[in-house]
Design a protein around this nucleic acid. Structure first.
Lengths: 123, 123
DNA sequence: TTATCATATTCAAGGAATTGAATATGATTG
DNA sequence: CAATCATATTCAATTCCTTGAATATGATAA
């Protein structure tokens, strides 16, 4: 991206930066998992079916951009979205893109080891 | 981007593709100029202060993705947005990103040669 | 049919994003 | 403090995006 646009274009660079966070299927899936509140990394790992290190890489992108925050609790690190306005963007995108509803769980069921999933009844 | 994700992530690839159209300041500026209806390329050129060929490149990206359509009228080619749902996305992004209001015109005023600007009174 | 107008395309170089592999960190338990 | 747990980071290779430069196209008017 160019460093200096005209005054008409310049104000959109910040929007473009923000949107770049969302142009990745895994980051979209993560943010949508965080719609119902915070989740630990192992929860995301179990539900997305991806390597832990890879998920951490994507979490790092979102974290360094200030879109999510982490909170440590014992062994686990829980992430939550700090800019809830992003959910409005995601909702508008869902309206726009015809798609099969994303599966909330992996086929065959998810065996999530996280404390949240193993204390009360939850996803 | 990977070709095969898990069933949980896969449905988001289409959304991510759509969003990639929006991760460019010039394309965002173009789409916002098209919020009030169709405009010819020379109009965009005058208002964005960018080379014509460069604007055409960005129009090509949006056109090939089916986000805009062109209509020829004599010398001019007019573009309009074919998926108005994108404006809801743009609105949600505006809510989310603190920014100075984009200038509607370039400083010093715009000298737009397009027929639309030179027939009646308009921007 | 040639000149001119508005717009489109192609190409190539540089830069940025993606992702696998390997490994590091830092809290917790024994 | 050593082992183990969940999570984070670094690095490098590949792929994808951006953008300037040059040029092509296709409609119109003389």
């Amino acid at each position: 991206m160019i460093d200096e646009y005209s005054d008409v274009v310049q104000p959109y660079t910040a929007q473009a930066q923000l949107l770049k966070l969302l142009t990745h299927p895994v980051r979209l899936a993560i943010l949508n998992l965080l719609r119902d509140g915070e989740h630990c990394v192992c929860h995301l790992e179990a539900h997305l079916g991806l390597r832990q290190a890879y998920i951490s890489q994507q979490l790092m992108v979102l974290r360094e951009a200030g879109m999510i925050q982490d909170r440590r609790d014992g062994w686990n690190v829980f992430y939550h979205v700090t800019q809830p306005g992003v959910f409005a963007v995601l909702a508008a995108v869902r309206e726009l893109v015809p798609q099969a509803e994303p599966a909330m769980d992996r086929p065959g069921g998810v065996d999530c080891p996280c404390p949240k999933c193993n204390s009360a009844a939850s996803s």
